[in-house]
Amino acid sequence: MKLEILHQPDSAIAKINLDPQEELVAEAGAMVAMSSNLNVSTTLRKGKGGGIMGGLKRMVGGESLFLSVFRTTSEAGELYLAPKFMGDLLPYQLNGKTLLVQSTGYLASTPGVDLELGFQGFKGFFSGESIFWLKISGNGILLLNAFGGIYEIDVDGEYVVDTGHIVAFEDSLSFRISKANASWWGAIFGGEGLVCRFSGKGKLYCQTHNPSSFGKEIGSQLPAR
């Protein structure tokens, strides 16, 4: 497999050259274009945590998590994948590490990568992301997407990220929700509200822009349907 990311950083699109008999798993709806000899199938779940319990969790999470599987036959093929929001793409080499990814941050992965839906509890609810997070482990390449640019932060100790800006973080890190201000008055009226306070040692990936702020900004200017 050869992965190339074009048009970075604002409208990134991934060009993937698959060798014969190779497979790639991607988020449903991510395919932009592909060679005609590629076989596409839809699967419910990949890797661990499938089965009935996995299905139930998925239902509770309000997420279908259908995945598309692209497979080449005896010939090589080409595939273009792009996320829904304009922004950057980041290939991440898993190598046995576990990464927690906010549920819209996943774009594609190689077959050795396991996706599992994890519950982050109430803090997930306040994080500005979905309550459910993808716990991604195994070996292979994982392709993440973001709204805006992606930047990497080496956390050693503590670090603060505004809600809605998280893409993914290594599981050696944990976060808690706290208020940005010393006072509740400021936290509520100051516009910053709640923030995620990360602690531990590991890599954290953030997106430069916040999809919900963008939505708020342009929402009122959209024509009525």
Binding site: D162, A180, F189, G190, E192
Partner: peptide, 30 residues
């Protein structure tokens, strides 16, 4: 996006809601 390095006890006025990430010892006041 704007990355600003603040020296010790230096302050910066920011539009409400524009903060994306920061070091944990930076304090915020509205």
């Amino acid at each position: 996006s704007l990355r600003v390095k603040l020296t010790t006890n230096q302050s910066l006025i920011v539009e409400a809601g524009a903060m994306a990430a920061m070091d944990s010892h930076i304090t915020m006041k509205s």
